[in-house]
């Protein structure tokens, strides 16, 4: 019984960590130049939200970083990400994964 409870607790506690790890691995960070205007940056949301593989897009005007989260088992190539951001009117400085920091 004790073993069962411990196993249950371990699974319960570890599950969110595992989910977070998967999600973090499925997130890309893009450093961008020219990201100074909220009104203009809506273009970034628009172009990425039309991609089926994209779950969420966040724009940070303070850090000039665009965070793109993908739906499970899907992603965009770095080349496509660069293309979409360039088409939105911005210059890509770097594309980073969670592992890159």
């Amino acid at each position: 019984m004790k073993k069962f409870i411990l196993t249950f607790l371990a699974l319960t506690l570890l599950s969110p960590v595992t989910a977070f790890a998967q999600n973090a691995g499925n997130t890309i960070y893009v450093d961008v130049n020219g990201l100074v205007c909220d009104f203009c940056a809506r273009a970034v949301e628009k172009v990425f939200n039309e991609e089926e593989s994209v779950e969420d897009v966040k724009v940070d005007l303070n850090t000039k970083v665009i965070t793109i989260s993908f739906v499970a088992d899907k992603e965009l190539s770095e080349e496509k990400i660069r293309e979409l951001i360039t088409d939105s009117g911005y210059d890509v400085v770097a594309v980073r994964s969670a592992e890159d920091g």
């Binding site: 009117g89 210059d91 400085v93």
Partner: peptide
């Protein structure tokens, strides 16, 4: 026509 855009870290 957008003839030229200059994107910098803190300005555009």
């Amino acid at each position: 026509n957008l003839i030229k855009r200059w994107n910098k870290k803190e300005t555009q």
